[in-house]
Simulated scan of single mutants.
Amino acid sequence: MRTSARARPAGAPSRFDDADLSAAAALLEDASSVVILAHVNPDADALGSALALGLALSRNGCTVQVAFAEPAEIPESLAGLAGAELVVPADDVDPTPGLLVTVDVNSRARLGRLGALVDTTPRTLVVDHHASNTRFGSDHVVDVTAESTTVLIAALLDRMGLPIDTDIAENLYAGLATDTVGFRHSTGAGHRLAGRLLDVGVSPDELMRPITDTHPEGWLGMLAAVLGRAEVVTASTGTRVVWTWITTEDAAGLRSEELDSVIDIVRTTKGTQVAAVFKQAGPAHWQVSLRSLPGTDVSAVATVLGGGGHVRAAGYSCDGTIGQARERLLAALSG
């Protein structure tokens, strides 16, 4: 049997913009059908936000679909999140929902082919915490001070007076824990929300182990190859960068989750300010993950290179040889 946190009174004060929260709550309360979109290759914050909101709305009588353009299925590490029954294939999404909601999506491009829904839906509510958000859509709850998009979803549910039960709490916690790197980058408010979610019944070890702490044996061989070729280089500004790359051969048989974990190992290199991992996505196409220490804004760097993200965690895509890709990054860091 689910347990629930007592809902805060509708309209209760929040640390986020009251007008934006109230307007978004009114949109959601008036909608009879909602499509909630996460970005391509959703992480725990994107999918956790979508499922938490979807569960709350569906239990309040709303027809809900949750979707993302790719991959075709929920990533294996996130398959245990409650609410997976709300997820529909991209091809089956209602083309004309009463309301479109995007979560953890900084730009229309991050919706992939489902971005066309922005044109066919009368209102699009964008809920996000990225500094690089382009303000697409008609309505916004965008706050860069939020530790995760799930924090904003929790605030929205409180504004609507909807209860947070264990299923919803697990989705909220997954996004908050991952986006704060295990609460290392959380404010006191983020910790207090986590405590509230624990009180509802979240078991952090049981919830987070498959998301962040479980990898197949093949992961070890990939790590050995990729870490073995890691290098430290210095940009013209003096910024020291540790970088490496993952080829399609390295990645054979592995999930995207395994590849995404490499940056969190590389970034621990002492004496460097920026970490970069280039993941081969085609013969001459790379997806790049960036991390930084305080004082270096990799979101600004990624934006220059056509991507975006957070001050200390960002990404972008580029074409060319691995040498050319590296030089473009160093040039952007030097600019």
Rank of each mutant, 00 (worst) to 15 (best):
D104T: 01
S14I: 11
I322T: 10
A72M: 11
R267H: 04
D205W: 13
S132M: 01
N171H: 04
L111P: 01
V40W: 03
G307P: 03
A251Y: 07
T303N: 06
R267Y: 02
L86C: 07
P9N: 14
A7D: 12
D20L: 09
S107P: 01
H191C: 11
R326K: 15
W286I: 09
L333E: 08
A44G: 04
D17L: 01
I322W: 10
A189S: 15
I36Q: 04
R267F: 00
L114S: 07
E70P: 10
Y173F: 15
L55Q: 14
G188P: 09
D139A: 12
D43P: 01
I211N: 00
S236L: 10
L81F: 00
T178Q: 03
G115F: 05
Q287F: 07
G271L: 03
L197P: 08
G182V: 02
L53V: 06
D104C: 00
D158T: 14
G295Q: 06
V233A: 10
T268E: 13
F183Y: 15
E249Q: 10
Q324M: 10
T178V: 15
A302M: 03
G54Y: 02
G335E: 15
S138G: 09
Q324L: 11
G221T: 14
T212W: 03
R312V: 02
S317L: 05
E249K: 05
A155I: 12
L51V: 01
A23M: 07
I74R: 08
R196A: 13
E231G: 04
P204T: 14
A5T: 13
G295V: 07
V266T: 12
S77N: 15
A19Q: 14
D17F: 00
L27M: 10
D91R: 13
R240Q: 06
D139C: 08
T239N: 06
G190S: 11
K270L: 14
V127E: 01
L193H: 12
A31D: 07
Q287L: 11
S148T: 05
A116T: 12
G323S: 12
A251C: 06
D165I: 09
A84E: 09
A46W: 01
A251H: 06
S4N: 12
L220N: 10
V144N: 03
V298Y: 09
L293P: 03
A79E: 11
A82R: 14
S236T: 12
L86E: 03
H129C: 03
S203A: 14
V126R: 03
R15C: 11
Q273T: 08
L21R: 09
F183C: 02
K279L: 13
L100Q: 07
T303C: 09
L220W: 13
Q280I: 05
V142S: 00
F278W: 08
L305Q: 02
A31P: 07
T180N: 00
L329Y: 01
T166Q: 14
R123C: 10
V288K: 04
